[in-house]
Design a protein around this nucleic acid. Structure first.
Lengths: 178, 178
DNA sequence: CCTTACATGTAACAAGTTACATGATTAG
DNA sequence: CTAATCATGTAACTTGTTACATGTAAGG
């Protein structure tokens, strides 16, 4: 039941289409919430049915209509209520750590390959996050409360990335030590 | 399809009952994989049906039989195969960051409360992880490859916890800055 | 008295993934 | 020639959660 609130939160920022939201919730971009386009379109439909979103279709030649969703007052109320209630922490489920745990059945090659690709992935993401940081949040103390909070969400992504890179160093070093 | 391999990996370490596994996969303990007891019992049943686990029931007075599961050769083959194939990274889905993102609809009180309880939770977990580290992994370089890899899995948990605590400091400071 | 540990499960539901579908345009 | 971008969806499936079920014994 949390995807819907992630969508409402995004649409509270500004109205958007399913396509737009799909970009922002993709595996690369989304450091807050990941979702596939199927999930997003389905949930937008439900939210619209329930009156939490209003929709305006912009007809396009040779393409499906672009549907722009806007949060309704009822949607904002629902979002507010959810935001005010404590949410449980997400579960941890990491296949990479499973591999480390059963490491005696895995060749070094496999582990190193995973570490290398993970490093690449995080370096790329971190670079993207840092660009956002430099462009929009260069002086955090001068920001309004609203943007400070968004900055902190971004900082969490950066902090997570740095922790992964630090651990990767440690892992590669220890695996190479005879 | 990954819970089953997390279970196989745990049972490859040593045979165990559903109850044991439930302890290890609980929200507190599991820094590798979280699962509820319903999921665990269901998946153990399936794995047994498919011949990847063997089971021995120990009858008990006044209680359900304790069922001890052991990985079979077929189970080890399946685990090996899975371990050798690259696995996608888990998705990010964090309700706390949703709250920060829609922060203008949330009162400071709510955010602070979440930060405080998150800090407590991580401090507790970190203390537990560090105790495991001190007890079993005090000299990483002297460990066998197998235990080194398990140590690295634990180190990942510690690294993640430290990153959260660092971010929490940052968040609390910035939220208090006028 | 209430909670936790012990020990297993079933049933119904919600959330998330995979496969399939359409179809033009632009960039490499 | 191939892939990506644009723009939406349906259907079938798997994974994970919530609620319900049973029953004893120990500890605060």
């Amino acid at each position: 039941m949390a995807l819907r609130y992630a969508l409402l939160a995004a649409l509270h920022e500004r109205p958007a289409t399913g396509y737009d939201l799909n970009q922002r919730f993709g595996r690369r971009q989304g450091f807050v919430w990941n979702a596939s386009h199927q999930q997003i379109y389905r949930e937008l439909g439900r939210l619209h049915d329930e009156g939490l979103l209003s929709m305006e279709a912009e007809p396009q030649a040779e393409r499906p209509d672009r549907k722009r969703y806007t949060i309704t007052p009822a949607g904002e109320v629902a979002l507010r209520e959810w935001l005010a209630t404590p949410q449980p922490r997400p579960a941890t489920r990491d296949p990479l750590l499973v591999k480390f745990f059963a490491g005696d059945l895995v060749e070094d090659r496999v582990l190193f390959d995973e570490l290398v690709s993970l490093r690449h992935a995080w370096e790329e993401r971190l670079a993207a996050y840092r660009e956002i940081e430099a462009t929009w949040f260069s002086e955090p103390e001068t920001l309004s409360r609203h943007y400070r909070l968004q900055y902190l969400a971004l900082r969490r992504g950066i902090s997570a990335g740095q922790a992964w890179l630090g651990w990767l160093d440690e892992a590669e070093t220890l695996l190479r030590t005879p």
